[in-house]
Nucleic acid binder design. Structure first.
Lengths: 130, 130
DNA sequence: AATATTAACGCAACAATGTTGCAATTGATT
DNA sequence: AATCAATTGCAACATTGTTGCGTTAATATT
């Protein structure tokens, strides 16, 4: 059985996620880490966190990838079916944990994963835009 | 006013889209073109087609980008709110034009674009998997 | 506390994807 | 046919992510 270790870098990454209210890209995390570790290491840490269901990966409409901490540890079936909102102005990506899409699929499709990302103006930018 | 021109490369790209039932990546299109034009040109053609609402861009869960022809020319409000299905086995991405997600959003969010992609097994692979 | 095991790391090198500037080409208009 | 500017090719670059391998260090074992 493969055991997972707590390293300085991993701890630092988790701390960054803890502080952040928005999803973060690899580059943002790397910057925040102030090059505490190599960028390859950061990639590998993120991979592990995703694999361990501690963090989930969000692919934006523009193709950029961000990561956010999971807030549903107790769930059995682990599927990230909540919506994500990507603001075109401030470029922040946030989880909308309570927004879940409902849809009707034709027969014989088996869904394993979902990406539901909305793009537009977040409340902050929406209001400052009036 | 900027006018758009019909070039050999653009015509060829449109022909490829016409023949294909699935969404295509830049690389796939380039291969299909048999290097009729430079890959940069293909990128620019795709950009223009997306801008002219002739083609829409689909970002997959794994971050790969594909393009598909639009089938709703008559619509006024042009938003690609239908689902896309990405098969984990055959790697094909298809439009599910009739599958549209319904969801309830908190106030003060303005949605301009949607990415709703489902990943799993398509009917073809689902059946051959039994 | 010392040692062993191996997960995790750093570094270098590579690969894929996408972008930009600029001179040359070519489609459309007059 | 001449003109205008949209489009192209090419070279160069940027970003993002991956891989191999020798080294380091976290955890378990003695």
């Amino acid at each position: 059985m493969k055991t997972t270790r707590n390293t300085a870098a991993k701890t630092a990454v988790l701390e960054i996620f803890g502080k952040s209210k928005t999803a973060l890209s690899h580059t943002e995390i790397q910057k925040e880490l102030n090059d505490l570790c190599d960028r390859v290491t950061t990639y590998r840490i993120l991979d592990r966190l995703v694999n361990d269901d501690i963090v989930h990966k969000i692919v934006n409409l523009d193709g950029t990838v961000k990561y956010a901490k999971c807030h549903h540890h107790a769930q059995r079936v682990h599927i990230h079916n909540h919506a994500h909102f990507s603001c075109e102005k401030c470029l922040e990506v946030t989880c909308l944990e309570n927004v879940k899409p409902s849809y009707i699929l034709p027969h014989n499709y088996k869904v394993n994963d979902i990406n539901f990302t909305l793009s537009g103006l977040c409340p902050k930018c929406f209001n400052s835009n009036i």
